[in-house]
Write a protein that binds this DNA or RNA. Structure first.
Length: 933
RNA sequence: GCCCGGGUGGUGGAACUGGUAGACACGCAGGACUUAAAAUCCUGUGGCUUCGCGGCUGUACGGGUUCAAGUCCCGUCCCGGGUACCA
């Protein structure tokens, strides 16, 4: 009986995280602890996470990394007196759900909602302070009604170069009516409706045009880039080719300059800004017309950023898609050219850009005329020239461009050098400085000019002659906004007789109809096109059957959180004025260009149209790194039917690799007991294999990759939380390393954090569950410790250096422990600063300490500056840069005080050993260094 | 290919603006407690060398700048992300 009581008492005193976490979760939910409203009396702060796509694999330990960081920051800001908005939602339209629907026939809405529920319960386990009453799902018609509304705003707007902003399309029509030139060169009111539409279409921010897609004839569908591997479909390995299709686009290029300028006003990592700048790719150059030999009426217009190199041109290159390519090809070459163009259709843009070591191309047999020298220049077609950039044609300068150089070498074309004092016989001279030479004709001479002056002279000359002009170009293209898919927002557009009509706000949302099959229609159209009673409208009208891409909903979601239940507006002006920009946005660097550029553009459009009063959505952005999962491989020989342990001395170069699902791998990274047998039961292709071991173990090669369902290396946070608790999980994720760095997941290290919280618990709570710290006066040392920790933690949170925060909590507690500190005055401060990291245990301590209110309603403790400074500093003293000893000096000591003491120090005397001292370096508060011979 | 990151003990990582490399943890080794194990606590722990004091060496690799380099500069290698329809 006694025994039982003792055991019971012991159990009472243990840190029972599951009980504590359950209790406070329920308590906070009942008291709507995290609901926020627009409190004008407090300064606001908006902390946002990039919302997840709810995949079928569930949340893995990589997702919460950023969420935990932002949660800590949100809770910290709250302690600092801010009214903090911290919402969460789901990016719920997407390809995987549709693919799953094709395979299983289950409606994507159903699977998506199941996945969302799973994600939500997983997120709720981790103790985030999200205001769930503001949750959004992009696939919810109540949400996508407004995504469609945004589309209509883009559709019904144009970019005015006069006012340099987006304006309603009516102002454009008014200008046309007043006589603004149109491309039909007829008065506006004499144009047909179709002509008017075509003309306006050239201005709309959302417009229809043609572009290439990945078409797979065998699957009868359009494929996403990542569904294409080496020119073949990932599923089935069928041939994929590029096909021209009519699609919706967003005219983001009109915002290129403002997207560049806006970067100066936001706090993003410099590297990320650089990526965006490169993506936008602003370049200054010229368009120059080249006459074609034997063809009177046509010209080839090239874009070049290096007009200064015009005398270095020795050939011309057209993109395979260039409209004139076939026309100029001479009959003897037409078969060869047609074959080459067909080959290019099977090549992805990525392949075309990257595989330039062995550059391909074909001669058309045609020649251009050099505008200044009248020299004949052969015209080639090559895939390294892309149709979407510039004019789709280049003047090739092998002496100044490495791709042109490679091409010239391969096709035996002359390399003309025009740079003074350079040798271009082996590689191109690509520096942006130098003097031009060998560049003279009857018309112009560039000899002796530097590159910039030569550029200007050439541009002036071509402009004077009317054969070209100065031109600013962007690498960025207008954003493709159509998908031939079911699971996306339908366009609020319908047609009749080739004319487009837009729905109005009252008609929204245009909801997705039920379909019987999610399979592609085989003709490249979306599955929606097969539903006749949805497509066909009364009066002979037909709906648009494409849907919007995944980034549509995510381009504006940060605004919907501000007013999520508003049914008459996407967000009231009052709310968007109060919450304003996102103050801190945390998410993966993989969205560096796509999502971030689109949402920045949409924000600017809404700003231009007066719906919001800021033109950058995200004030500060932090990119979290990826948490990789472990994958284990073994090598095998198919013919010999042998598999080899990694610790055998084998030559892996001719062997095949096999990834083993992680459940077969033991903690020692070998096959589990009987693992080989059960492995072969699943992967029967290895049934008759010999598994060759070394030292009686079969070990694997390890690598770190993305966690994915397919590799079966997903680590589920639920399991970790069940075993260690949410507080430990949160702290451990932060303890792993700097937030923005990629890192591998390894559960082994979690014991350190777990032990820390257990030690803290048993230090503060006795066997009977009573709170130990008392009213005793803290000692000087403990006051130093806690004040320094408060300072360090708040400095580090502001920098989002959360891994060092965890270390400092440990260091602080280790110090308090060795000081035998029992003062509740100290510990209460400690619990407050700990609460953003480990909210449950902090609240439990707070409660045990007899406090009635919540630890989250406290104020962040003040720092008493007097405890931060030391009177003395332990100077490292080095001789010739190598530290030899430490000597303590007063912090105000100057070199004159210090020098004699240092020189008479025994250790230092030994190292100086009578040699003369050339220099005595004293850096106050840092170091002393003696330079001797 | 191009653009952007990263590379520090057996492992995750720390190191302010160039100023004691390896904080804080994990793991491992030894010890205490226990009949035993687990848990917990204590000690040690980059490598080489030395009985020890100590010495040498060391931040992917090769150079450079500096009194002083993980940190700055030049070159190389490897790994990750993006490359426009994965999200």
């Amino acid at each position: 009986m006694l025994c039982i009581i003792i055991i019971f008492a012991n159990r009472m005193s243990e840190y029972n995280f599951s009980e504590i976490e359950k209790k406070w979760s329920e308590h906070w939910q009942c008291h709507s602890q995290y609901a926020v409203s627009e409190e004008l009396s407090k300064p606001k702060y908006y902390v946002l996470d990039m919302f997840p796509y709810p995949s079928g694999a569930g949340l893995h330990v990589g997702h919460p990394l950023g969420y935990i960081a932002s949660d800590i920051f949100a809770r910290y800001k709250r302690l600092k007196g801010f009214n903090v908005l911290h919402p969460m939602g789901f990016d719920a339209f997407g390809l995987p759900a549709e693919q799953y629907a094709i395979e299983t026939g289950k409606h994507p809405a159903e699977t998506t909602n199941n996945n969302i529920e799973r994600y939500k319960s997983q997120l709720k386990n981790i103790g985030f302070c999200y205001d769930w009453s503001r949750e959004i799902k992009t696939c919810d018609p109540k949400y996508y009604k407004w995504t469609q509304w945004f589309f209509l705003k883009l559709y019904n707007s144009w970019y005015s170069d006069d006012t340099n902003k987006a304006e309603p399309i009516e102002s454009l029509i008014l200008q046309f009516e007043k006589g603004k030139k149109n491309s039909y060169e007829k008065p506006w009111n004499e144009l047909t409706e179709l002509e008017k539409q075509n003309e306006i279409s050239k201005y709309r921010l959302a417009y229809k045009s043609e572009s290439y897609i990945n078409w797979c004839q065998a699957l009868g569908t359009v494929l996403a880039n990542d569904e294409v591997v080496n020119g073949l479909s990932e599923r089935g390995g069928h041939l994929v080719e590029r096909k021209l299709m009519s699609q919706w686009f967003l005219r983001i290029t009109k915002y290129a300059d403002r997207l560049l300028q806006g970067l100066e006003t936001v706090d993003f990592a410099e590297s990320l800004k650089e990526m965006q700048r490169n993506w936008i790719g602003r370049s200054e150059g010229a368009e120059i017309d080249f006459k074609i030999d034997l063809l009177q009426d046509d010209i080839i217009k090239v874009y070049t950023t290096r007009p200064d190199t015009i005398f270095g041109v020795s050939f011309m290159v057209l993109a395979p898609e260039h409209a004139i390519a076939e026309k100029i090809t001479i009959p003897q070459k037409s078969k060869e050219v047609a074959d080459y163009i067909n080959y290019c259709k099977t090549r992805s843009e990525l392949e075309r850009k990257s595989e330039i070591k062995d550059i391909s191309g074909v001669f058309t047999g045609a020649y251009c005329i050099h505008p200044f020298s009248n020299k004949k220049l052969p015209v080639y077609i090559s895939e390294y020239v892309l149709t979407g950039y510039g004019t789709g044609a280049i003047m090739a300068v092998p002496c100044g461009d490495s791709r042109d150089h490679t091409f010239a070498k391969k096709f035996g074309i002359e390399i003309i050098n025009i740079f003074e004092n350079t040798d271009v016989s082996f590689q191109a001279y690509e520096e942006k400085s130098g003097i031009i030479t060998n560049s003279k004709s009857e018309i112009i001479s560039l000899n002796g000019l530097n590159i910039n002056d030569a550029k200007n002279k050439v541009i002036c000359e071509v402009e004077k002659r009317g054969i070209g002009c100065r031109k600013i170009n962007f690498r960025m293209r207008d954003a493709g906004f159509s998908r031939q898919r079911y699971w996306g927002e339908p366009f609020p557009i319908y047609y009749k007789n080739g004319l487009e009509y837009a729905y109005s706000l009252e008609d929204l949302p245009i909801t997705l109809p039920q379909v019987n099959s999610y399979k592609p229609t085989g003709d490249g159209k979306s599955p929606l096109s097969a539903i006749e009673n949805w497509v066909n409208l009364p009066g002979g009208f037909e709906r648009e059957t494409d849907t919007m891409p995944g980034y549509a909903g995510s381009s504006w979601y940060y605004l919907r959180y501000l007013d999520p239940h508003n049914e008459s507006e996407f967000c009231s002006k009052k709310n968007s004025d109060y919450w304003n920009q996102v103050d801190l946005y945390i998410g993966g660097a993989e969205h560096a260009v796509g999502h971030l550029l689109y949402s920045r553009m949409w924000c600017k459009v809404m700003f231009d149209l007066g719906y919001i009063s800021f033109d950058e959505p995200f004030k500060k952005l932090v990119n979290q790194g990826m948490i990789g999962g472990e994958v284990f491989y073994f090598y095998y020989n198919q013919e010999k039917r042998e598999a080899y342990s990694n610790n055998l001395p084998i030559d892996k170069s001719n062997l095949l690799q096999f990834k083993v699902p992680n459940e077969y791998v033991s903690d020692e990274e070998t096959f589990e007991e009987n693992g080989i047998t059960s492995f072969c039961n699943e992967f029967i292709q290895f049934k008759d294999f010999k598994f060759l071991k070394s030292n009686n173990t079969f070990t694997f090669e390890k690598a770190i990759t993305k966690m994915s369902k397919r590799l079966r290396n997903v680590v589920n946070p639920d399991e970790i939380i069940a075993k260690y608790g949410a507080d430990t999980f949160r702290m451990y994720e932060m303890f792993l390393g700097p937030i923005e760095m990629d890192k591998p997941w390894n559960t082994k290290g979690i014991d350190g954090v777990s032990r820390f919280l257990k030690r803290l618990w048993s230090y503060c709570i006795d066997e009977n569950g009573k709170y130990i710290p008392d009213e005793s006066k803290p000692c000087e040392e403990s006051l130093k410790t806690i004040n320094r920790t408060i300072k360090k933690i708040s400095d580090d949170i502001e920098k989002l250096s959360l891994n060092t925060c965890i270390s400092n909590f440990m260091i602080c507690f280790n110090e308090l422990q060795s000081q035998k500190c029992k003062s509740t005055e100290i510990f209460e401060k400690y619990f407050i600063i700990l609460s953003p990291f480990a909210p449950f245990i902090a609240q439990e301590f707070w409660h045990k300490a007899g406090k009635q209110d919540s630890v989250f309603n406290c104020e962040y403790p003040e720092i008493d500056e007097k405890y931060l400074l030391d009177d003395t500093f332990n100077y490292p003293v080095s001789v010739n840069g190598k530290t030899r000893t430490l000597i303590q000096f007063h912090k105000n000591a100057i070199q004159a005080d210090i020098e004699p003491i240092v020189l008479s120090d025994e250790k230092i005397k030994k190292w100086v050993d009578g040699k003369s001292i050339k220099k005595f370096i004293f850096v106050k508060g840092r170091i002393i260094n003696l330079v001797i011979e």
